[in-house]
C-alpha cells in the first residue's frame, strides 16, 4: 500500500510538471498582451512598451520559463502581473471561500443525493421513484445561474431571509459564514445531487437484484438492514467514484456560482486572470488544481479498500 501511495504521489508531481509546461506554452502562444491590458484602452505604444520591459515580458520564452520554473521549485509562485502582489498570497486569500463552498456543496450533495438514490431504488417504479427521477432531470438540466437568480429573488429580495451576495470569512464567525453560503450551496448542489442520486439509484438497483439480497429478504432481514448493511456497501464503489469525480469537478466548476453570488473565490480569480492575461496566476492555479485533482482520485482509490475488502494495492 505504501509503495502504491508513493508511486501515485510521484506520478502526481509528474502530472503537475507536464501541466505546468503545457499551460506555460499555451498561454504564451495565445494572443493577448498583458502589458496592453494593464495599460488600458487609452494607452500609448510607449506606455505599453514600458510595462512590457518592466514585467520582463520581452525576455525570450526559454528564459521566462526557466525563471518561472526555478521559482516554483523554491515555492515561489511568482508575482501577479496585474496587481504586483505575490500569487501565493492571492491564491491563499481566495482559497477559503472556494473550499468552504465546495465542501458544503459536497456534504449536501452526498447526503441528499445518496438518500434520494436509495429511496428511488427502494421504491423503484413507484411514485417516489418517478418524482425523484423528475427532480434529478430538473437538477441536472437547469443551469446553476438560473437557480441562483431564482433563489436570490425569492429568499433574499422577497423574503429577506438570506443575503443576496458576498462571503463572510469563517474568522468573522460561523453564523455569518454559514448564512452567506446557504444560497450558493443550494444552487450549486442541485446538479450534483441529481448526478449522485442517478448513479446511486442505478448502482443500488443492480445490487438489490442480486441473489444474496433475495436470501437476506428470505432470512427476514429488515428493510433498513437490507438497504444500508448489505446493498449500500456493495453499491458503494461506483457511488464513491462519482463523489470523487464530482468533488474534483467542483473545484474547477464553481466559477458561475461564485460570480452569481459574488463570492471572491478561486474561480473568479482565474476568470479575471484569464481576461487580464495574468500568466503567473493562471499557471499556478492550474498546476495546483491538477495536483488536487490527482490527489482526490488517489483518496478515492484508497477509500475503495475501506468498503470493498477484495480491493488491495
Amino acid at each position: 500500500m505504501a509503495i502504491y501511495i508513493l508511486r501515485r504521489m510521484v506520478s502526481t508531481i509528474a502530472v503537475m510538471v507536464m501541466v505546468g509546461m503545457f499551460v506555460f506554452l499555451l498561454l504564451r502562444l495565445a494572443p493577448g498582451d498583458p502589458a496592453a491590458i494593464i495599460a488600458g484602452k487609452s494607452a500609448t505604444a510607449e506606455m505599453i512598451a514600458g510595462i512590457r520591459e518592466q514585467l520582463g515580458l520581452n525576455d525570450p520564452l526559454p528564459v521566462q520559463f526557466v525563471h518561472w520554473a526555478f521559482g516554483i521549485l523554491r515555492g515561489d509562485l511568482g508575482i501577479s502581473i496585474f496587481s504586483g502582489r505575490p500569487v501565493l498570497e492571492l491564491i491563499s486569500q481566495r482559497l477559503e471561500p472556494t473550499l468552504s463552498l465546495s465542501i458544503l456543496t459536497m456534504i449536501l450533495s452526498v447526503l441528499v443525493g445518496v438518500s434520494f438514490g436509495i429511496l428511488a431504488a427502494w421504491r423503484s417504479g413507484g411514485f417516489v421513484d418517478r418524482l425523484l427521477t423528475a427532480f434529478s432531470a430538473f437538477g441536472y438540466s437547469v443551469p446553476v445561474f438560473v437557480i441562483g437568480y431564482f433563489l436570490i429573488y425569492f429568499f433574499a429580495i422577497r423574503m429577506h431571509w438570506l443575503p443576496v451576495q458576498g462571503y463572510a470569512p469563517i474568522g468573522e464567525g460561523l453564523g455569518p459564514w454559514f448564512v452567506h453560503l446557504v444560497l450558493p450551496t443550494v444552487a450549486l448542489s442541485l446538479g450534483f445531487i441529481a448526478f449522485i442520486a442517478r448513479v446511486t439509484r442505478a448502482s443500488m438497483l443492480e445490487v438489490l437484484s442480486e441473489d444474496y439480497m433475495r436470501t437476506a429478504a428470505a432470512k427476514g432481514a429488515s428493510s433498513y438492514a437490507m438497504l444500508f448493511h448489505h446493498a449500500l456497501k456493495n453499491a458503494g464503489v461506483p457511488i464513491l467514484t462519482v463523489i470523487g469525480l464530482s468533488f474534483a469537478w467542483l473545484i474547477g466548476g464553481v466559477v458561475l456560482t461564485e460570480t452569481v453570488f459574488n463570492i471572491p473565490g478561486i474561480g473568479r480569480l482565474v476568470v479575471d486572470a484569464i481576461n487580464n492575461r495574468d500568466y503567473p496566476i493562471i499557471q499556478s492555479v492550474l498546476i495546483l488544481t491538477s495536483g488536487l485533482y490527482v490527489l482526490i482520485n488517489l483518496t478515492v482509490d484508497l477509500a475503495y479498500t475501506l468498503i470493498d475488502p477484495r480491493i488491495r494495492y
Binding site: 437568480y149 433574499a156 429580495i157 429577506h160 451576495q165 460570480t259 459574488n262
Partner: peptide, 18 residues
C-alpha cells in the same frame, strides 16, 4: 467599496439594501 462583477447580482443587492 464592494466588488460585484455580475450586474444582475449588483442590482439584487441594491434592491435588498445590501
Amino acid at each position: 467599496w464592494q466588488v460585484i462583477t455580475d450586474q444582475q447580482t449588483a442590482l439584487a443587492a441594491l434592491q435588498a439594501g445590501e
